[in-house]
Design a binder for these strands. Structure first.
Length: 198
DNA sequence: CGGCTTTGACCTGCGC
DNA sequence: GCGCAGGTCAAAGCCG
């Protein structure tokens, strides 16, 4: 994941290099990792839903934070009820529970196969709601990015059909670097600066 | 004490 | 018009 270096200052992150999810609505991400394993250290695999073929490297940081990521179309996932939800969600929301039309925000939805509901994508999230969802025994959780200037949201819901699959929907684009990435990189950068003095 | 989660209430759009 | 469903708010409580 070489593009990880891109977010180390306050400059916007690079354009999204990954095109596939935007063009094929049926990709399946799997995250078959130990609980609490950081995503950035052990990124999930992207599988083709029909062939099961493992697809090449995913630039997760760019995918989840690029300011000029894919078009504003949402990416549907394979589950029928979630696709239906996606279509409803494309109406944007402003105040408290209201649904008013405004410019659509980028939305990316994908499934991860994981025992953990929370996909560790390197950003910090604050939970602001949880709702029971019709036709699902699992609730949907609502998270907001904790960065003060960032209003990216995500929804997390486990599939009732297959409780090993978690559907994560991101809405919006991060306008700041990945905190966890910076935590990892800062000591390395300091060490590099130190060594470069010799 | 600050940051986070929980949870019930509230608000609005949509379908009937 | 009404009820339902989904999304958000905000107070209360928890935790490090």
């Amino acid at each position: 994941m070489s593009p990880l270096m891109e977010g180390q200052d306050q400059t916007p992150l690079p354009p999204l290099p990954l095109q596939a999810p935007n063009h094929n609505p049926s990709y399946l991400f799997t995250h078959s990792l130990l609980p609490s394993t950081p995503l950035l250290q052990h990124p999930p695999q992207l599988l083709h839903p029909n062939t099961g073929q493992v697809l090449p490297d995913i630039d997760w940081v760019s995918l989840l934070s690029g300011p000029t990521g894919p078009s504003s179309e949402s990416v549907s996932v394979t589950s029928g009820n979630i696709v239906d939800q996606e279509q409803k969600d494309n109406k944007d929301y402003t105040r408290r529970g209201s649904r008013t039309k405004k410019a659509t925000r980028p939305r990316y939805a994908f499934q991860t196969k994981s025992a953990d509901d929370i996909l560790d994508d390197g950003f910090r999230w604050r939970k602001y709601g949880q709702k029971a969802v019709k036709n699902s025994i699992y609730p949907r959780s609502y998270y907001r990015c904790t960065h003060h200037t960032c209003n990216v949201k995500k929804q997390v819901q486990r599939l009732s059909k297959d409780n090993s699959i978690v559907v994560t929907t991101y809405e919006g684009i991060h306008n700041h670097p990945c905190e966890k990435l910076m935590e990892t990189l800062t000591p390395l950068l300091k060490q590099m600066q130190f060594l470069s003095n010799f």
